[in-house]
């Protein structure tokens, strides 16, 4: 009976006032951005800075509305999302498999890991001329570039996660005679999930950064292309609209990953899971 009381006591308490607390924190977090936008607006309308250097916030908003209503945003955005998504999927898949293998098999790690670390020292974007040479200027070279840069964070975190699983839990697996695949699925993979999600978040962030670079270097569509177009045609409000779209993309995918992480890792007994 006292056991029941203890368990219930642990579960509740986290719920009380959770919503109120979240609203309060949101309010606090919004103070600074709101002030910056207000200051930006006042500076722009004062005329002390010429409009070709600093467009008004409302003009940027105007551009966003126009891009949506003409369907241009949807067209460019879907191209960009496909590039980021396919590249990310390719890079993460390869990184997951290799990361698990190198984390688990010491022999494999000694063969593969030094080479991967050496390759990692080449800045991702430095690959792009070779990728364009090998895969052409089209979509494939962009997938390859994004796959490459998203590979490393997931690989490193997965390997560290698998290699760093608590020996005490592995011993539990051993006395219960779990071997090979069963040890992997029951103990090693679940235990390394927290670290895996750290890698996923880092990779997603990098995917967007490199996407912009790839689209700036040679593309006829995509948000990065639109941004370059804004620069070439002297429309800074369009440039800033594109910047905001990128920020939203990055934030939305990050929230998506951390929301999934929070649910998948609900078993963690930590203070701030997924924050």
């Amino acid at each position: 009976m006292s056991d029941q009381a203890i368990a219930i006591d642990k579960r509740s308490g986290q719920f009380n006032g959770a919503l109120l607390e979240r609203l309060r924190r949101l309010g606090i977090a919004l103070i600074l951005p709101a002030s910056i936008i207000a200051a930006w607006h006042l500076t722009a309308v004062s005329g002390r800075v010429p409009a070709y250097l600093l467009p008004q916030p409302l003009e940027v908003l105007n551009w966003l509305v126009r891009l949506v209503s003409t369907g241009e945003l949807q067209r460019h955005l879907s191209t960009s999302i496909a590039r980021a998504g396919i590249g990310f999927a390719l890079g993460v898949s390869a990184a997951t498999v290799l990361g698990v293998l190198t984390g688990y098999l010491l022999g494999w790690r000694r063969v593969v890991d030094p080479t991967i670390h050496a390759l990692r020292t080449i800045p991702g974007l430095a690959w792009s001329p070779m990728f364009i040479l090998w895969f052409g200027i089209g979509e494939s070279s962009k997938y390859a570039l994004i796959a490459l840069v998203t590979f490393f964070p997931v690989y490193l975190n997965t390997m560290a996660g698998v290699a760093g699983v608590d020996r005490k839990l592995i011993e539990v697996g051993r006395v219960n005679r779990l071997s090979g695949l069963r040890m992997m699925t029951r103990i090693l993979l679940p235990a390394s999930l927290p670290s895996y999600f750290v890698g996923l978040r880092q990779s997603m962030g990098i995917a967007w950064i490199v996407l912009v670079a790839a689209e700036l270097m040679g593309a006829s569509s995509g948000i990065g292309f639109l941004l370059l177009d804004g620069q070439m045609t002297g429309r800074p409000a369009l440039v800033m609209a594109c910047m905001i779209i990128f920020a939203l993309c990055g934030k939305i995918t990050d929230i998506a990953i951390s929301t999934i992480a929070r649910h998948v890792l609900a078993w963690q007994d930590t203070l701030h899971t997924g924050e």
């Binding site: 005490k168 839990l169 011993e171 539990v172 697996g173 006395v175 219960n176 005679r177 779990l178 069963r182 029951r186 103990i187 679940p190 235990a191 999930l193 890792l265 078993w267 963690q268 007994d269």
Partner: peptide
């Protein structure tokens, strides 16, 4: 031969039921 360690050593991601059934695969 079964072991109970000094610490419970439960798998934190698995329910109590799955922890207890670990060796009955």
């Amino acid at each position: 031969i079964a072991v109970v360690f000094q610490e419970p050593r439960l798998l934190p991601w698995a329910s109590v039921r799955d922890n207890v059934g670990l060796g009955l695969w």
